[in-house]
Design a protein around this nucleic acid. Structure first.
Lengths: 101, 101
DNA sequence: CGTGTAAGGAATTCTGACACG
DNA sequence: CGTGTAAGGAATTCTGACACG
């Protein structure tokens, strides 16, 4: 499932260039639990391309005036919806193949 | 054709970690024309995942004792082979569809 | 709440050079 | 030839804080 897109290898300066967001904003969105960079041994943040896409989504929502707390809730809900969808698919597969245990 | 894999966004420190090569070696392979990072405005080198794969190939060849000059020649030859193959494919397509000009 | 900024320190990166071989 | 290293400077990143609102 994981690929180059998910590898956390990009430093904050490059992320800032790529997204057009200030480093301050990027760090703040992390503080609010919207994004989760990894760290090098000495503490430098490292981001993935997926993180960059997420930051762009966040930037869109912020431009609409949505608060970080709401954005976070939205993300959590999206994740829940996906989980439910996956469970239903699994349930139907199980029913179809009559799998038990 | 280009994707995340080809985007030059990784700084030399991370590349060094990912490849196990010293920064000195990585810069030297660039000096010898084996690898071509981009630069940020202020001159910091930026590499892609493709570059990292190439560096690993270079490392293998160096371990076999092959000199950088030979490695470079090999790379050029591989490129030529691919070009020729592409030309042949194009030629056959043209012949098949009887395309002119 | 969200973001800018100045502050000081620590870590990163760069280049050119000397060393050894 | 290929790579290590010490050198000095410049740019990067980090954190905690103050500011405004």
């Amino acid at each position: 499932m994981s690929s180059y897109k998910d590898k956390k290898v990009i430093t904050i300066g490059i992320v800032s260039e790529l997204t057009g967001l200030s480093e301050r904003k990027i760090r703040y969105y992390e503080e609010r639990g919207l994004i989760f960079p990894e760290r090098t041994k000495r503490g430098t943040r490292k981001y993935s391309f997926t993180d960059i896409e997420l930051l762009l989504k966040i930037a869109d929502k912020r431009e609409e005036g949505i608060q970080t707390y709401e954005i976070k809730k939205d993300f959590i809900n999206e994740t829940k919806k996906k989980d439910i969808r996956d469970q239903m698919i699994r349930g139907q597969l199980n029913a179809h193949f009559n799998i038990r245990k």
